[in-house]
Design a protein around this nucleic acid. Structure first.
Lengths: 122, 122
DNA sequence: AGACCCAGTTACCCACAGGTAAGTCATACC
DNA sequence: GGTATGACTTACCTGTGGGTAACTGGGTCT
């Protein structure tokens, strides 16, 4: 939260901190696929989500892009990657405990979008 | 919120609706400048925010881009544009009542970003 | 041996968000 | 008349997010 000083001015340092934080978040979760992947994994925790399965079930994402996004999300601890010893080898992706903290955010974003649609139509 | 059916499956229609809503939100508020502009105007309601003032005080935004972003935000009712009869003519931009509904969202995003920084460092 | 499956890479391409620099239009001051 | 200021345009350029297609590498099935 922005801390407000007595005279109603915004604390500049905090403000700058928040700006950077917003940039961080958008960099990590912005783009066409990230949130979608997080929501996908968030809603299928109990399933065995392999690379191919995700590619099939998430819209039209190419292998290249999916691999990229998954690597990035993994590096940021939002998802986990487990190589299973099945034949042929499959890889299981799952949302991490930490990754679940973004889900409320996506709900807020979705809710605002829904409200906005109604708003615009009237 | 995603509605969960008895067997723990996700309601597909609702899910799709939310996906679209998220796309809407990101389209409208994503990008490099939008949230920054909203927060700027949100924290300076009582001030007279002209085009030049904003250009000076918001980072290094070019006239072209600023004009673009402002037009878009205005079209979506998030901000208001008022031509003042001063000399030379100035234009006053302000956040709209509706526009203020995005501020909690930015706080959430900022908060998550801040937490994430701490998280990553440890 | 040949065909198929998974989990990716690699190389190439393109549209577009966003940046730079200069120009326009109206008014006002010196 | 010349210069300045606010609020934009206009023309042009570039980086990169994301798309396509084909390929690698390891394993299995017949």
């Amino acid at each position: 939260m922005a801390t407000i000083k007595e005279k109603g001015q915004i604390n500049e340092a905090t403000c700058e901190q928040e700006r950077l934080a917003i940039n961080d978040t958008l960099e990590l979760l912005g783009g066409k696929w990230r949130l979608r992947i997080m929501r996908y994994l968030g809603s299928r925790e109990q399933e065995h989500n392999t690379f191919k399965k995700m590619q099939r079930e998430i819209g039209n994402i190419s292998a290249k892009v999916l691999a990229n996004e998954l690597a990035d999300l993994e590096q940021n601890m939002l998802i986990t990657r487990t190589v299973m010893d099945s034949r042929p080898v499959t890889v299981r992706y799952a949302i991490s405990t930490y990754g679940k903290t973004v889900l409320p955010l996506t709900e807020n974003i979705a809710q605002w979008g829904l409200d906005h649609r109604k708003m615009i139509r009237s």
